[in-house]
């Protein structure tokens, strides 16, 4: 058996799929931090603020925070990738 993978995926589909997976994971991570911070015997943090906006530390709030923060940051970088890829001489994707 040899490792021949004849299926070829368009690179941008893979990259976007990874982007979505990472943003979803950021939600899970955010929720975990939201569970962790308010635990009584721990650091007991109940309130958080970002750019002046106060919000309670709950798993849901932190999941939203994670998704928006990572989604926007990586989204901007992804748009930058899209932009510079126009000047890419080595492209093999005509789509």
């Amino acid at each position: 058996m040899t490792e021949t993978v004849s299926d070829r995926f368009r690179g941008r589909r893979i990259v976007v799929a990874i982007y979505l997976a990472v943003v979803a994971l950021a939600g899970v991570f955010g929720a975990s931090v939201g569970v962790l911070l308010p635990v009584k015997s721990g650091r007991d943090i109940q309130q958080a603020s970002f750019a002046g906006a106060e919000f309670a530390v709950t798993p849901l709030n932190f999941a939203i925070y994670g998704v928006v923060m990572v989604g926007v940051t990586l989204g901007v970088l992804l748009l930058a990738v899209r932009f510079v890829s126009r000047f890419d001489d080595g492209s093999v994707d005509e789509g």
Binding site: E3, V5, D7, R8, F9, R10, G11, R12, I14, V15, I18, V22, L77, A80, V81, R82, V84, S85, D88, G90, S91, V92, D93
Partner: peptide
Amino acid sequence: FNWITTMWNGKIRLTTPMLFCIGFVG
């Protein structure tokens, strides 16, 4: 950034070495 742009304009074969490359980037 350059690895991601390389993939963006490429046609990808998901062989085992490539999976490890993508895992590396993540």
